[in-house]
């Protein structure tokens, strides 16, 4: 029983195609409850796609995803929306509602899912905005924010309801070193204090590893390596090593699948 409870999300034998391209091939992984799990991998491997599959916005071609034991893609529309109310997601693009102010954006999940009085909502919103350093920007419209500020506002909205399960898609992108430090602190504090399950997708390897409990390295639709941060850091596998150290040359391809450059440049000229 305890064993079961420790798994919050279970992805089993997942396959997913985008048109002709296979994004995931028989991918299986589990996300433990109450821990911070990092998902890393080269750009374009499908990390965002995986988060959207977990949120039920995309449907897998094969395999299943279970959240708390429920198969996400077999739920009725109504139950799916109930489940989503317990998830928080920070979109890679931020996705702030452009017709509302920053404060209204953060208040939105609170207003639709709770009956809290307006004064409490206001205080909660100010607290969340304060945590990401945007209390002063509460009356601005999203169009008036910088990229990094918009990301932080979206983060404040994602954590507004204190959901059980949080997905952060690139929370550190576009942040200055100070903001980055604050956010890393914030995410780990939320996790330790409230026991949220967190999934972080990020390219900032060292920062992410510093707070993650478990790491999945995904490449070519498969799990390339997994384990605690130390295990990965000390890995002998040349592919893992290359990714961890950020070296341009090595077995992991930097390029999107393509015919050889030489062929393309000189192939047609004859």
């Amino acid at each position: 029983m305890a064993q079961l409870n420790d798994t919050h999300i279970e992805v089993s034998n997942l396959s997913f195609w985008r048109g002709e391209r296979k994004i995931f091939d028989d991918l299986s992984l589990t996300i433990p409850r109450g821990k911070i799990t990092a998902i890393m991998g080269p750009s374009g491997t499908g990390k965002t796609t995986l988060l959207k599959l977990i949120g039920g916005q995309l449907t897998p071609d094969q395999g299943s995803i279970r959240v708390d034991g429920d198969n996400v893609h077999a739920l009725s529309r109504r139950r799916l929306f109930e489940l989503r109310a317990k998830m928080g997601m920070l979109f890679q693009s931020g996705a702030l509602f452009t017709d509302m102010t920053v404060a209204e954006n953060v208040a939105f999940p609170l207003r639709v899912h709770t009956d809290l009085p307006e004064s409490v909502v206001r205080d909660l919103v100010l607290m969340k905005l304060n945590a990401v350093g945007l209390r002063g920007a509460s009356e601005l419209k999203p169009a008036e924010l910088s990229g990094g500020m918009a990301r932080r506002a979206a983060l404040a909205r994602a954590i507004a309801l204190d959901p059980d399960f949080l997905m952060y898609d690139e929370p550190f992108a576009g942040q200055d070193p100070i903001a980055m430090g604050v956010l890393i602190n914030l995410i780990s504090r939320l996790n330790r204090a409230l026991g949220h399950t967190s999934v972080i997708v990020s390219h900032d390897i060292q920062e992410t590893l510093s707070i993650a409990d478990y790491v999945y390295l995904i490449s070519d639709g498969k799990v390339l390596a997994q384990g605690a941060p130390d295990q990965l850091n000390g890995s002998e596998d040349p592919r893992v090593e290359q990714f961890m150290k950020g070296r341009p040359d090595g077995p992991v391809p930097f390029h999107f699948p393509a015919p050889s450059f030489k062929d393309q440049l000189f192939g047609d000229s004859q």
Binding site: G55, F81, R84, G88, F91, S93, A95, F97
Partner: peptide
């Protein structure tokens, strides 16, 4: 435009249809 900026997807993820 709401679709392109993922606002519709975001409503879904907040649990609002």
């Amino acid at each position: 435009l709401m679709k392109a900026t993922e606002q519709l997807a975001c409503y879904e993820m907040i649990g609002v249809d």
